[in-house]
Design a protein around this nucleic acid. Structure first.
Lengths: 144, 144
DNA sequence: CTTGACCTTCCCATGATTGGAAGGTGCAGG
DNA sequence: CCTGCACCTTCCAATCATGGGAAGGTCAAG
């Protein structure tokens, strides 16, 4: 059940590079063989998979660290976990909203552009944030 | 009409720090006074506003560079601009789609969580990417 | 014994932005 | 004139998560 970092990478879907990085920031602490080679048990791979899943869901490393602490804390309350997930959901929803605003703006500009060989282009005109003259576009606040 | 970097920052909405950075990567080339102080004309501020708008719409610095080149090219075709905007739109739409998948996954987990003081938590169970047992969640491909 | 596939550590790069240190400049008041 | 203060300059570093690569050690098969 004990494996090298390469095997652990294949088993968890995290690159060996990132596994070493996660170790360097204290997310995981594998044993070492007499070689100096890192040695991963089944539970380590399990933990790495947890990290991979949470990262894929857009949690930051620090959030993953919190989730890991909760995960390993037998006396945790599920409310704590739910609060963390809920806060992240708010961020994600806001991100979608902001991006959709950007999309609408770009679509609006693009629709006005005839897209031919002439140099006249409403997109560039709309992107010009200088002196407002006509129907100036509204700028979204944050782009992520 | 000529101004310091601080005034240009206030006028364009870009921090002085970033204005210097944009200069260092060749997006803008203001004159210098005998002081060594940078000197911005109205057209420089206009250009900075253009950069701010495009960045706010989520274009990368390199895309902004392309847009700037088109902007300043009198013989450009509007089709080129539209193609660039269209490609960016595709990226943005995909980003929204991926984020919405993540949101759906998290909402699904969160809805199953009673969120009380008990340690039992379906969210953490769902985040466990280890050995599948029950209704395992589907992982979105990329998180951004 | 050689070869190739691993492993180790270390440093560097990305993209966009922010922060700070150390030092020069300009303008106002005392 | 001196002193502050607000501004400017350059340079260096950090962020976040990841990838790339060099230089060298280890192991198993041929």
């Amino acid at each position: 059940m004990s494996m090298n970092i390469g095997a652990a990478a294949r088993a968890s879907g995290i690159s060996a590079k990132m596994i070493r990085y996660y170790e360097s920031i204290g997310l995981i602490s594998p044993d070492r063989l007499a070689n100096g080679y890192r040695c991963y048990e089944a539970r380590d791979v399990h933990l790495l998979s947890f990290i991979r899943t949470t990262r894929a869901l857009g949690f930051s490393i620090e959030q993953v660290r919190s989730l890991l602490a909760l995960w390993q804390d037998r006396s945790r309350s599920s409310a704590d976990v739910k609060a963390l997930a809920s806060g992240h959901l708010d961020v994600l929803r806001e991100r979608v909203r902001a991006t959709q605003t950007i999309i609408a703006t770009l679509e609006h500009l693009s629709a006005a552009c005839h897209g031919d060989l002439r140099p006249d282009c409403p997109i560039l005109d709309g992107l010009t944030g200088g002196p407002r003259h006509d129907g100036q576009i509204a700028l979204p606040a944050r782009a992520t």
